[in-house]
Simulated assay, not measured.
Amino acid sequence: MLKIGIICYPSVGGSGIIATELGKMLAKQGHEIHFITSSIPFRLNSFNPNIYFHEVELNHYPVFQYPPYDLALATKVAEVIDTEKLDIIHAHYAVPHAICAILAKQMAKQPVKIVTTLHGTDITVLGIDLSLKKMIQFGIEQSDAVTAVSDSLVKQTKEMLGINCPIHVIYNFVNEEEYLAHNKEELKRNFGIQQDEKVLIHISNFRKVKRLEDVIHTFAKVYKETPARLMLIGDGPEYGRIHDLVRELQLDKVVHFLGKQKNIPSLLAIADIKLLLSEKESFGLVLLEAMACGVPCIGSNVGGIPEVIDDGVTGYIEELGDIDAFATRTLELMTDTKKWHAFSVKAKERVFQHFSSDKIKKQYEDLYAGVLGENNEN
């Protein structure tokens, strides 16, 4: 069994969720997992004797305008490598985590291999910044193995950064244990939703790239045709603007801003349709979560979304910004009960056949064994 250090963001975002859930699965398999981050990861909510947490503490020095988190992280990672005799450091994001892992590897006495997973923002946002381009290239090229969460992200990384080293596609996954059957009608009653009202749902960090205005305008068209509610889960810089748009369209009684929520499976269980109409999306973990609950999805034809939604089978994919098409497809599913049920069944099947946690865990274990030069039985 391996000793694996995981560097990730501890927050609610998709990369942190995947990193934490992967660590929990590997720990159940018997591997020793060491999370190295600024606070206990959001999803690390149960005890396992194979899981350890190492907090990165910041010191404030007058010479620095801001506390140097990257240097503190690299120092902590090097310390854990040596004291715990780690075999692998798995860095989620090229910048800053892979860079910190590389620096830590150089400082540590214990030999260690570095696996870096690209989740998207490190390429689609940071990769555009010319001042960071060389650093991202360095982080990728100096890693012993690199993975990305979609074919689309691999292609984008190679095109933007001129990367020639292999990048393995290992998709995101869901923890099946969290997506058990819920009593949909009872949950709806708890929210005061009438039996004849359909529920649309959107989950994101409320950034411009998520195009929440398209979600609102799509819902407005749907609401004109049939009783419906829209549940918006999350928070971020677009919150105020979108709140104003909802009031301007006089939808404030049927659009609910629920803020950040922890119990996503229960909220998804209420939904009839999931909307993800982003202009950039390397994978779309929220789509997988919705499909695991049997919720058909409507998505834009960008990034990794077409790799998650099976168009015409588990949901629909339409061109970016096509509000009429989004609304038409949503109404089609909401008004055709037989088709909705067929899509719902296929959505669950797709998640558990193509994105199962056991399948993804095995792919990572094989990758670790490969960089260590071991066979799969170790």
Rank of each mutant, 00 (worst) to 15 (best):
P67L: 07
D122V: 02
Q142K: 13
V255L: 01
M160H: 09
E159Q: 15
Q353I: 01
M107P: 03
I270V: 05
E197K: 14
I360K: 09
E79C: 01
L153C: 10
H90N: 15
E238F: 08
F173P: 04
T117Y: 11
K346C: 12
E319L: 13
F191M: 13
H34F: 13
L200C: 09
T124G: 00
D129V: 00
E225M: 12
P49T: 08
A27S: 13
T124P: 01
L71V: 14
L251V: 03
T121E: 09
Y52H: 15
E374F: 12
P296R: 08
Q106H: 12
E307F: 10
A369C: 13
T20M: 07
D144A: 05
Y9K: 08
I89Q: 05
T328H: 14
N50T: 02
C8G: 01
A98I: 03
R247W: 00
L268N: 06
K105Y: 08
P306I: 08
L118Q: 08
A72V: 04
S344D: 01
A271L: 04
K105T: 04
R350D: 08
V246C: 03
K208I: 02
I102G: 00
R189M: 07
V125L: 13
F64L: 00
E141G: 01
L187M: 06
N263Q: 11
S39K: 14
D214W: 11
N50F: 00
D235A: 13
G240P: 05
I40C: 04
E319Q: 15
G294R: 04
A72M: 14
V308G: 09
L44D: 01
T335M: 12
D336C: 09
V77T: 14
P111F: 12
T226D: 06
L200A: 11
E318G: 11
M25Y: 09
I317D: 05
N190K: 15
A342F: 06
K348R: 15
I123C: 05
V351G: 01
G236V: 10
N172Q: 06
F326R: 11
A74S: 15
S46K: 12
A19F: 12
A101I: 07
L212F: 10
V215C: 02
V80C: 11
L372Q: 04
T75V: 06
I193Q: 03
P49H: 08
